[in-house]
Design a binder for these strands. Structure first.
Lengths: 208, 208
DNA sequence: GTCTATATCTCGATAGAC
DNA sequence: GTCTATCGAGATATAGAC
């Protein structure tokens, strides 16, 4: 069932405002305004604010997971997988900033939605991107391609490096004013992060 | 002027609840309850919710900055500085989770408070921890102790590695259920992160 | 300084015309 | 399906007794 135009507009507006102001801070009136419609339509399509939020959150999560899937499966070496993962992650954040913000927000608040959706995902798709990357790391350790690091911590480090600039953008912009051209800064980050992590993980280091 | 006991109790309760539910989600009634007092006292000491929030935010920021200052100045090598910075950061997050959550939340929301306070800090204390660590990185690059990395990106990577487990705790706990003993996981992270970053940054890699 | 009681308003949700 | 008008809960903030 394809959602109607109206429903889609409301949905998009909700994503934007929930991401910007959080679940509690976003106003149904503001969402309706953003969509160029009225509150009654919001309730007509989504019943309540709670249900609207859950729908939006589920969508963000799904969109997020889908964004790496293909990339990761084509990698033929750990280095390539690492680069694809980093590039994919950062590109996703750049183009779907609202979705990312929503996910981080929910995590930060310790909401139960994160656990629910992840558990479900783990059950229905045991080789979703996070697990896939975990196993990629474990294989690379086993084959000696990288040092014997803890896979969970390593994945956390990779993800954090990708996400953090978006989370801490206001701080980053003060510390690094030249980054006024945000897009260039984000692009440069892909390369920096790959270098740092690849050097940090690989077994042998031929001198330059 | 030392704040009265009452004021302090209200303040602490506010920090807890603002961190837990965000500025919009936290209820003045709930803050009063948490402090074992009533709403009227909140307005008596802090005028409005806005002013209460600003006071709490400023305090969190200040507490955060103060927590590294001494540690960083005693380091005699880059490796030592890196270890002190990581240990200090993670320990701070562990013991002042609410303050950290508040700061991250405000960053995520792109609030203007972050910029204001950081600008002011930069003016009054030009060698506050962030700048201090930046210069430490630059010196280490200049001396050849580490590879010629971009200092801003590197600092961002270090900070993100420290903070992220706390930000993404719900996700981390699903991916890594053994981390049910959170404290042990956090302690282990100090070592993991230092290893990863030190290997990633240093110039030469003597084989084990 | 501290409390109870209340004023004022904002927001989520619904009713009902079209 | 879409809108205007409105209800009623719950929020911030204040008044005023003690």
């Amino acid at each position: 069932m394809a959602p109607s135009d109206t429903e889609q507009q409301l949905f998009d507006a909700a994503l934007t405002l929930f991401a910007r102001h959080g679940k509690a801070g976003a106003r149904m009136q503001a969402i309706a305004d953003e969509a160029g419609l009225n509150k009654a339509m919001l309730h007509y399509y989504f019943r309540s604010k709670d249900q609207l939020y859950e729908a939006v959150f589920g969508y963000a999560m799904q969109q997020f997971m889908a964004s790496f899937d293909n990339a990761l499966r084509t990698a033929s070496s750990f280095g390539e997988a690492l680069r694809l993962f980093i590039d994919g992650y950062i590109t996703f954040c750049k183009h779907h900033t609202d979705a990312m913000r929503l996910l981080v927000n929910e995590n930060l608040r310790g909401g139960s939605l994160v656990g629910q959706h992840l558990q479900q995902l783990k059950a229905t798709a045991p080789d979703a991107p996070p697990q896939l990357m975990l196993r990629t790391i474990e294989r690379a350790v086993a084959s000696g391609e990288i040092r014997p690091v803890d896979a969970d911590h390593t994945l956390l480090s990779i993800v954090s490096g990708c996400l953090f600039p978006f989370i801490a953008r206001p701080t980053a912009e003060v510390l690094h004013p030249e980054a006024a051209q945000w897009d260039a800064f984000v692009e440069a980050r892909k390369q920096h992060l790959f270098d740092l992590l690849y050097h940090g993980l690989r077994t042998d280091t031929p001198s330059a």
